[in-house]
Design a protein around this nucleic acid. Structure first.
Lengths: 115, 115
DNA sequence: CAAATATACATAAATTTCTTATGCATAACA
DNA sequence: TGTTATGCATAAGAAATTTATGTATATTTG
């Protein structure tokens, strides 16, 4: 990924969310889209991306279709049924995570919570 | 930590923010406070916490004061000057991270961004 | 009052995730 | 024609965390 350690653990969620949104994507496309969306802040390295895609596929969350475009290989990934379900869970976890981190950073965001 | 992988990489930032806020805390206190704030969602394990504290101390970001309370040992940690500066950076990174993740999850949060 | 739980620290082995470094191949650009 | 972009892959190493222990005292509970 990039500088701050914070992105560790979020790669799978990012991949799955993008696939949920775009139907199908190939690896290189994912790296470029993430770079665009985060205005260059997050650069997914190939060494992280490809093993992650392979693992998601092995876990039955992604399906692959290989295509040749401009005489170059592309592996299009899309969510399986199981992957779609899991994506819902992951996104819910992500929202909880973000909420919790915001609360930790600015605890008075939730004045009801006494500690 | 807990279930979702997302918290990986955020432990140091959490520790430093809590210390910035509370002046000084001991390890066990940190675990309990985090549990409270996140309503039980995030449980920092000892195997993660203590090595993290030791490393932050070794890096000169934390100072320790050992005290005996109720005949039990406590190691109070607080930010050094250097640690205070670094905390500002880490929190800025965290905010950027959260923004980016929110954008990834709900890209239309920023309609100006075309891709 | 004995057993279980809470408080409080610590470390070591194994696992997971990611970085860094390569490698291969084609296309486009300068 | 050399560099950059596109597109995939893997392997070695680093870093953070989990899981499993270990030690010790205090408190609660049956």
């Amino acid at each position: 990924m990039k500088n701050s350690q914070l992105y560790k653990g979020s790669l799978n969620t990012i991949i799955m969310k993008l696939l949920e949104e775009n139907g199908r994507m190939y690896g290189y496309e994912i790296t470029q889209k993430v770079k665009l969306i985060t205005k260059g802040e997050l650069n997914i390295t190939e060494g992280a991306l490809y093993p992650a895609l392979h693992k998601l596929e092995a876990d039955g969350l992604l399906d692959v279709e290989v295509e040749r475009v401009d005489n170059r290989l592309r592996k299009y990934y899309k969510l399986t049924k199981s992957g779609e379900k899991e994506t819902v869970n992951r996104l819910a976890e992500l929202e909880e995570f973000i909420k919790n981190m915001q609360t930790l950073v600015t605890p008075n965001i939730n004045p009801d919570l006494q500690y």
